[in-house]
Simulated scan of single mutants.
Amino acid sequence: MDYIETERLILRHFTEKDVNALFTILNDKDVNVFLPMFPLKDIEEAKEYLLYIENYIRQKGFYYAICLKEDNIPIGCIHVSADDSHDLGYSISRNFWHKGICTEACRAVIDMLKQTDIPYITATHDVNNPRSGKVMQAIGMVYKYSYEELWQPKNILVTFRMYQLNFEGDENRVYRKYWNKYSTHFIEEIP
């Protein structure tokens, strides 16, 4: 589970050698708009983020660098949290947007997760980032509901759409934590 190959990609753990690539990905303001963090300011912050990733994995989460096979240099990242949401998240360098790379990486991670005891994954996207929702749809996730959250640390009000993919076959199973936590929640018609 430390290494996954697809047709075009290698998904692997980040190493100290990847600090410059990680900085390039996470300091880009355009990439960062929909991430729950501010852009990295310098290489020192990228080194600190590598420690965050190591801790994330120690806590039983999955966190991979997305690399092209041709050079094995990180161009993005993909992760699944260890908490009860099993939240799937991903980001990719701007130069690689709209090439199906996130979809390919997500499908590979889902195939790997089906070999574990994780019963489902969830993922959320800002309504202002519909392309992320298209990735969720493309990998078979199903829209369940929307909710408003005062999103931290950026302190902005965001409407999120929550998607879910159940692995054990119970299509009626819905992760309701966000629905229950946030008073403004609703179901939209998603095209």
Rank of each mutant, 00 (worst) to 15 (best):
I10F: 07
V31T: 10
D126F: 04
A105N: 01
V19D: 01
Y90T: 05
E45V: 04
M141P: 03
E70V: 15
H79Y: 13
K99T: 14
Y52Q: 05
D117R: 09
R94Y: 03
R94V: 11
M162V: 08
Y163A: 11
F167K: 14
K69A: 12
M136P: 06
W97G: 07
Q59N: 13
T6D: 03
S132V: 05
F34I: 14
V158H: 02
H79W: 12
I190Y: 12
D42Q: 06
I110E: 15
F62P: 02
Q164R: 09
W97T: 12
I43P: 10
N32F: 05
F186E: 15
M112L: 09
F186R: 15
I73V: 15
I118K: 03
I73F: 04
I25P: 03
N72I: 10
V174P: 10
R8I: 09
V31R: 06
Q152I: 09
P74Y: 11
Y178C: 07
Q164P: 07
L157Y: 11
S85R: 07
I4P: 00
A108Y: 12
D126W: 08
T116W: 06
R107G: 04
R58Y: 10
L150T: 05
R161T: 04
N55E: 15
Q137P: 01
C77T: 04
I78H: 00
I187R: 13
D42C: 07
E54Y: 04
T122Q: 07
G89I: 03
I118P: 01
I10H: 02
M112S: 04
Y52S: 03
S81N: 07
I66N: 02
V174S: 05
